[in-house]
Write a protein that binds this DNA or RNA. Structure first.
Length: 609
RNA sequence: GCGCCCGUAGCUCAGUGGAUAGAGCGUUCGCCUCCGGAGCGAAAGGCCACAGGUUCGAGUCCUGUCGGGCGCGCCA
């Protein structure tokens, strides 16, 4: 697909040069608003008014005079201060029906960490946003030519995991109780344990047991227990469509000595110390003030006076590993994911592999931890690597409310991802039964639509906006939803199926017959590559989701378009020969673009729904 | 107290400094003699929180104010 806008820009730039404009501004070419004449326009004359001491329309007219336009520009004309271009309808549509060339591979490696759910209970809707954002962004960056490695961090030495495992022991539930999904089973025990802790006497016993479990976790003695829970959680992630390259366990990071290596490295810088008196006596601290201005207390504790390391210290060790400053973690195969892609895991007796050593990192973590991540980033500057610090990106998303209220995992005030998906699929199945009783594979389609609705609901809003998870909204299949986009896709598939049956698929297009209806849809289609690039640049999947809604809307509007007399204006299969070829080409292009777009936000593309 | 984020239609949200600020939900009215009505068209609904500023041009950039969310531990 050759790009139209850059060619117009080049033409305008050449005209400015011919006019002798000394210091030309950046040339912006945009689509003309609905209802205006022309297809594309540039406001460049307005910015030049002052320096050229002429009114914008006069400048625009001069530019128009000097323009050497490609033959596909029907006319260039001035309206107000704008210079507008009207293009040959056939050319626009022909361009939109050409297949895009893949983008060039870019150098460097992006290590993207997402999910990183505590291995202690089932996933809830708060985790959902993290997974959907991270997985979609990974897909977008890959299409944009980046080498992306997706990592899921397993905090198996944290307090949450210890509480859950101890809860099983405490309630005598260790053995397999197959009545529900294992992560739910463990999660129930965890919530029960916290209820039990309301009793002060029991709390003391429990605390002792949790501490003991914590030690066993750190020693790696409970790996198979964590493993069982993790595999159960992974089923949920896979069902959502998320996959990973590597799992990195915290206990492995600690065991391989990455933490102490990182501390040793920092020790050689002038910013760390071990105060012998005062507030921080006996601790190992880092002075952040040269790197983060405005701190009330510039000191950050890395190792407590009792010798244990802080969470931040562990994060620094991990970040140093991600960016290749430390080595030593070993890996082995862990699972074959639904797509067939192998998943690896860190493992003490594994083999060295090429994970890590990234030039850029993306951490998908909720916005409450912005400060902590800023410190991790600054620690790279402490280490004398501002270049690497620059490569750190925190994809901060705001928290998810549940029906307007804050969730609480401890108290069990959550809705699980499994439950949400089950309900969504159930509803989708009912709608299929109602609307398409002859459906050849209703259960598969219901799965695609139900899960798609949930996933799209998580993606469509900008990450930094707090969202409220409401059942009725997230499970809606109408309006600004995933199923709306899927429906548009299925509709296009349906036409192409019929065209194939009638042997029309390869009909030659006669672009001279192109109408204004095709041009509108074509222009929206032509925006797709720009949108993908912008979503990748801004690391913002919602940009793509929003465009998919626009694209589906443009297609639906085209599909239903009527002549002023109220007759169908855009019938594809019944169109005159030649025009039919044009329309079929457009539908093919739309169909494959929607498919690619759905894939990028992680939704399945059902051919029939 | 200091710092970060948000404030756009009744509700939920889009909106790379450019033309008359757009969707969805909800409300009202239309559209299957047409390839899928999970759709389409139309109506109604806006001091883009407020006040200054920068600019030829501000929902968008800057400053301040007011509302709301979240951070700022030898917690994780």
């Amino acid at each position: 697909m050759q790009e139209i806008k850059p060619q117009l820009k080049t033409a305008v730039a050449a005209a400015l040069d011919a006019l002798g404009v000394a210091d030309p501004p950046e040339i912006i070419v945009q689509e003309t608003p609905e209802g205006k004449e022309g297809d594309y326009a540039t406001p460049v004359a307005m910015g030049l008014a002052r320096s050229l001491r002429k009114p914008p329309p006069a400048i625009a007219a001069e530019i128009a005079e000097k323009l050497q336009l490609p033959q596909w520009v029907k006319r260039a004309f001035v309206t107000g201060g704008y210079l507008n271009f009207e293009l040959e309808a056939g050319f626009v549509t022909q361009t939109a029906t050409q297949t895009a060339e893949p983008w060039a591979k870019l150098p460097g490696k992006v290590l993207l960490e997402h999910t990183s759910v505590n291995p202690n209970k089932e996933l809830h809707v708060g985790h959902l946003r993290n997974i959907c954002l991270g997985d979609s962004l990974a897909r977008i960056l890959r299409l944009a030519g980046r080498n992306v490695e997706v990592m899921n961090y397993i905090d198996d030495t944290g307090r949450n995991a210890a509480e859950s495992l101890f809860a099983l022991e405490y309630f005598g539930l260790g053995a397999s109780e197959g009545y529900k999904k294992y992560d739910h089973f463990v999660g129930d025990a965890y919530v029960r344990l916290h209820q039990e802790m309301a009793d002060e006497e029991k709390k003391a016993t429990i605390e002792k047991g949790v501490q003991e479990t914590l030690h066993r976790l750190e020693a790696g003695q409970l790996r198979s227990e964590v493993d069982r829970l993790l595999r159960s959680q992974l089923q949920t992630m896979y069902r959502l469509g998320a996959e990973y390259d590597a799992l990195v366990w915290e206990s492995d990071i600690v065991r391989e000595g990455l933490l102490s290596q990182a501390m040793k490295a920092l020790e050689n810088t002038p910013y760390v110390s071990r105060p012998t008196e005062g507030k921080y006596a006996g601790a190992f601290v880092m002075d952040m003030s040269p790197f983060i201005p405005g701190l009330e207390d510039p000191y950050l504790v890395l190792i407590r006076s009792n010798g244990t390391s802080t969470y931040t210290a562990k994060d620094i060790g991990l970040q140093f590993w991600k960016m290749g400053l430390l080595g030593g973690v070993k890996f082995k195969e862990y699972d074959t994911q639904p797509s067939g892609h192998l998943l690896y895991t860190s493992f003490p007796q594994g083999s060295p592999m090429d994970f890590g050593k990234a030039t850029e990192t993306i951490n998908v973590v909720d916005a409450r931890q912005s400060h902590a991540l800023r410190i991790v980033q600054a620690s790279l500057e402490v280490e004398g690597r501002p270049d690497l610090a620059q490569g750190c990106f925190h994809l901060a998303y705001e928290t998810v409310l549940l029906e307007g209220k804050q969730m609480s995992g401890r108290k069990g005030i959550t809705v699980s991802v499994d439950e949400v998906m089950n309900e969504a699929v159930k509803r989708a199945r009912a709608i299929i039964a109602e609307k398409n009783p002859q459906h050849p594979a209703p259960d598969q389609a219901a799965e695609m639509v139900g899960v798609g609705a949930v996933r799209f609901a998580m993606i469509k809003t900008e990450a930094k906006k707090q969202i409220d998870f409401r059942y009725e909204q997230a499970l809606s299949f109408e309006g600004d939803t995933g199923p709306y986009v899927q429906y548009a896709y299925a509709r296009a598939c349906s036409i192409l199926r019929k065209a194939a049956e009638q042997g029309l698929l390869d009909e030659k297009p006669d672009f001279a017959q192109t109408t204004a209806y095709e041009v509108g849809l074509s222009k929206t289609l032509l925006r797709f590559p720009e949108v993908v690039q912008e979503a990748a640049r801004a690391k913002a999947p919602h940009i793509l989701a929003q465009h998919l809604l626009e694209l589906a809307a443009a297609w639906n509007a085209y599909y239903n378009a009527k002549t002023p007399q109220g007759k169908p204006a855009t019938v594809v299969l019944g169109a005159p020969q030649g025009l039919r070829g044009v329309r079929l080409g457009l539908v093919k292009s739309l169909q494959s673009t929607l498919k690619m777009g759905l894939e990028l936000v992680g939704l399945a593309a059902p051919e029939v729904m």
